[in-house]
């Protein structure tokens, strides 16, 4: 059984319909010593990808795929790297994207797939002026 209800799927499909740029969701999971959340993350991503043919899921092994791990600077799993037509968007999700995190995942996919950033023009100006590495970590819980 899917994690999304048929009604959720229909709503989500509509949300994702504006995507014009291919989006790759690179999922790192651990085969050993990992938690069940890796499987949940995989199921969620596959369900989302099934709703729009521009979205694909690429699976990587956190332990074995060391080159990709280094490339995307992944230090924990499960991790989801969001690519826009193969280019790193620098948006990452760690842990299974359930509950409120799921909203963040969908928003990130839409940004990657449309190249439209829904922020105030003044905010955009501030962000574009950032000239040093800035690492933002947002902690949340599923509920």
């Amino acid at each position: 059984m899917g994690l999304l209800s048929p009604q959720d799927e229909a709503t989500l499909k509509n949300h994702l319909s504006g995507i014009t740029i291919p989006v790759q969701l690179v999922l790192f999971t651990q085969a050993f010593g990992g938690s069940e959340s890796g499987d949940v993350a995989k199921q969620i991503l596959n369900e989302v990808a099934s709703l729009n043919d521009k979205i694909t899921v690429v699976e990587k092994n956190f332990v074995l795929d060391t080159e990709d791990k280094a490339k995307y600077k992944i230090d924990k799993a499960p991790a989801i790297v969001i690519l826009s037509d193969g280019t790193d968007t620098r948006m990452r999700m760690y842990g299974a994207p359930t509950g409120y995190e799921f909203v963040g995942l969908v928003e990130a996919i839409i940004v990657a797939g449309t190249a439209v950033i829904d922020l105030d023009p003044e905010t955009m100006k501030w962000l574009q002026a950032v000239d040093k590495p800035t690492h933002i970590q947002v902690f949340s819980t599923p509920t």
Binding site: R90, M91, R92, L119, V130, I136
Partner: peptide, 14 residues
């Protein structure tokens, strides 16, 4: 925010 500038990296952590 990360999408706006390549100097920015954004992680959402459970």
């Amino acid at each position: 925010m990360a999408a706006a500038n390549e100097n920015i990296t954004a992680d959402a952590i459970e």
